[in-house]
Design a protein around this nucleic acid. Structure first.
Lengths: 294, 294
DNA sequence: CTAGCACGATACCCGCAAGGTATCGACTAC
DNA sequence: GTAGTCGATACCTTGCGGGTATCGTGCTAG
């Protein structure tokens, strides 16, 4: 299938007349017939009722509606690409680990969005994937939670989120505060299971630093799932404090006694990247961070 | 531009290597080079940094990101078109006049959406456009506010919304109830100005039925604008009661003494259209209407 | 009922551009 | 410097998109 097919079908669906559609497309009528036949064949679906008067089938109406919006979107993408290429606009690719979405990131994104000269590209990815994406140029900045050593990547700690324990509602340790020693007695739900290294390793090493070892009752790949399993009583888990915005009646959060039990939000970027968009973004981050503290 | 260009650029952006991308596309490397050059020429933008290692430019990253989602969307559209064509799914095109969105329509849409075997197509259009779209097969059912005589179209009144007066905050006629005679003393903001016949004619004929004539201080094309002008003190207007969900501190609504001053929500459909999706939709509407009354 | 016509499908030809092969040239790495 | 990697260029081939001519069919007017 080619865009030609979409464009031709578009014209045909609007005029419902092969001859006039062909005129509008500045081609003769027979080639149009052929292209439409090809399209129908490739889809394996009749898009038109060939009776008089010509009518779209149900599938045809659906395809018409959606291919139109696709073509419009493509037009906009091309436009914006030209603008970015001519320096009229800038583009900033942002990679983020899911858990960073509960903290300052939404605010940052909102502010960057309000900048008319800036187009944002957001992709959810692990810190490890961020490093790859940075090197490949797919993103310009990443927000993650773990340290990774790579000579081409520069990392900075943005904030230190205190960790809190997520416990099923009615758990005896609630409302806290609790100690790591107490928590180590409980079965854990840890995430993400892969790829490693991950936030899970950060949690494990935290306990190890206190000479503690925890039993992992269940591995999951996502925070949301982990929280669900905690609610179901499978175990407990540690989450960054910002995750507490997830209110659930079947979950309680408890502060930790150990103030140094934290999870960082880490900004990754290419070493030596001094593009204006990135600089602007970093300046905005600085500003937001100061606002938070002050 | 053709889909070929997008697909090729996609592969290239992912591998960042002409030779390997060409392999993946099952073509030789030189044609790939040419197609990419064409794409860049058409966009008038460099998408690649031709140094070693190969890198995407900022515009290239943007185009990569967005063309990927476009291609994915296209894939889904084709899939769903096939499903609809094979009868596995149904499609229902709905046209609606903007003001009907404040009433039962959202609830109906929500329920129809929850039906996995049904794809919805929503288009905002005037009642007049609905008639054309029904005949052309672009939609299967329309929700509007005015009667139109057309032998191919069947119309039924779904509900009769009482009309209420929209007045600027602090207006002496507030909080009502008010009579049409009182209102006829005030300048009016009426909408939509075109195309005619429209809801405005319904309002005019309502006053005419009581032997009253109103002065139209301002015509607008949209309800939102009209409300804004009312708030600005240009005049007053009559709106269906369901519009009152638009709370504004600078607008007050007053009931009318004349209970027969109503605006209908009118369902339009093709005469003799007995498709399962439409039947299902109409049954659901019936159900919702009963729930409203009971 | 039939002649006329409107309109889409079919048949067939032409030219162009997409794809292939061979090769060059530039940058990298040792 | 030299070998190797990889994209660009040159040139050929061919498949396919588009054109013209014509057919077939179903609506319509009388």
């Amino acid at each position: 299938m080619e865009l030609r097919h979409l464009r031709y079908f578009q014209a045909l669906a609007e005029t419902l007349n092969f001859t006039r559609a062909a005129e509008r497309l500045h081609i003769a009528q027979p080639p149009l017939s052929r292209q439409i036949q090809q399209l129908e064949e490739e889809l394996g679906v009749a898009l038109l009722d060939r009776g008089r008067p010509l009518r779209l089938t149900e599938a045809g109406r659906f395809f018409h509606e959606h291919s139109r919006t696709l073509l419009e979107q493509l037009g906009k993408v091309c436009d914006n690409t030209r603008r970015i290429g001519s320096g009229e606009k800038a583009w900033l690719g942002i990679g983020f680990a899911p858990s960073t979405l509960y903290g300052v990131l939404p605010d940052l994104i909102r502010r960057l969005r309000s900048d008319a000269g800036l187009e944002l590209g957001l992709s959810e990815m692990t810190t490890l994937q961020q490093v790859e994406a940075l090197k490949a140029g797919r993103i310009d900045v990443g927000f993650g939670r773990i340290h990774i050593n790579d000579p081409a990547i520069q990392q900075e700690v943005l904030t230190l989120d205190p960790l809190v324990a997520a416990l099923p509602a009615g758990h005896p340790l609630l409302p806290g505060p609790v100690s790591l020693t107490d928590l180590a007695q409980e079965p854990f739900v840890l995430y993400p299971g892969n790829p490693r290294p991950s936030y899970a390793d950060h949690v494990l090493s935290l306990f190890a630093a206190y000479g503690l070892q925890i039993e992992v009752a269940q591995w999951t790949n996502e925070l949301q799932t982990a929280i669900g399993l905690v609610a179901a009583g499978i175990g407990i888990t540690l989450v960054p404090a910002s995750v507490q915005v997830l209110h659930r009646v079947d979950i309680g959060y408890a502060k930790l006694q150990e103030a140094q039990a934290t999870s960082p939000i880490i900004i990754s970027r290419r070493v030596g990247d001094a593009s204006p968009a990135l600089t602007h973004c970093l300046a905005l981050i600085e500003e937001l961070a100061e606002g938070h503290i002050g």
